[in-house]
Deep mutational scan, measured.
Amino acid sequence: TSIVNVSSSLNVRSSASTSSKVIGSLSGNTKVTIVGEEGAFYKIEYKGSHGYVAKEYI
């Protein structure tokens, strides 16, 4: 489990790309479970499925 480190919110994306669809967002200090990594993104558990967040904010 890791913590989201942002002051406002962090986009959760459908794939490991800044141009991919935003499927949701997480607020600062939210706990997330990392299940993998791809480039500059972590794959996380998100709403019963998976999403991707930028590593620099975790």
Rank of each mutant, 00 (worst) to 15 (best):
S2L: 14
V4C: 14
N5S: 12
N5A: 11
S7G: 13
S9N: 10
S9L: 11
L10Y: 08
L10M: 08
L10P: 07
L10Q: 05
L10S: 06
L10H: 05
N11K: 15
V12A: 01
V12H: 01
R13C: 07
R13F: 15
R13L: 15
S14F: 12
S14Y: 10
S15R: 11
S15Q: 12
S17V: 05
T18L: 14
T18V: 12
T18C: 15
S19I: 08
S19E: 12
K21G: 07
K21Y: 08
V22Y: 06
V22K: 05
I23E: 01
G24K: 02
G24H: 03
G24M: 06
G24S: 02
G24T: 03
S25I: 15
L26Q: 02
S27I: 11
S27G: 09
G28N: 13
G28M: 14
N29Q: 10
N29Y: 14
N29P: 09
N29D: 09
T30M: 11
K31N: 09
K31T: 12
K31L: 13
V32N: 01
V32S: 01
T33E: 07
I34C: 04
V35S: 04
V35M: 07
V35H: 03
E38Q: 08
E38Y: 08
G39D: 06
A40S: 10
A40K: 09
A40C: 15
A40V: 08
F41K: 00
F41R: 00
F41V: 01
F41N: 01
Y42N: 01
Y42F: 09
Y42H: 02
Y42L: 05
I44C: 02
I44K: 00
I44W: 04
E45Q: 09
E45N: 07
E45S: 07
E45C: 14
E45H: 07
E45M: 12
Y46G: 00
K47S: 07
G48T: 06
S49C: 08
S49Q: 11
H50E: 06
H50K: 04
H50C: 09
G51A: 08
G51Y: 04
Y52L: 01
Y52H: 00
V53M: 04
A54N: 09
A54G: 09
A54H: 08
K55D: 00
E56M: 12
E56D: 08
E56C: 15
Y57G: 12
Y57D: 15
Y57M: 10
Y57S: 12
I58N: 04
I58S: 04
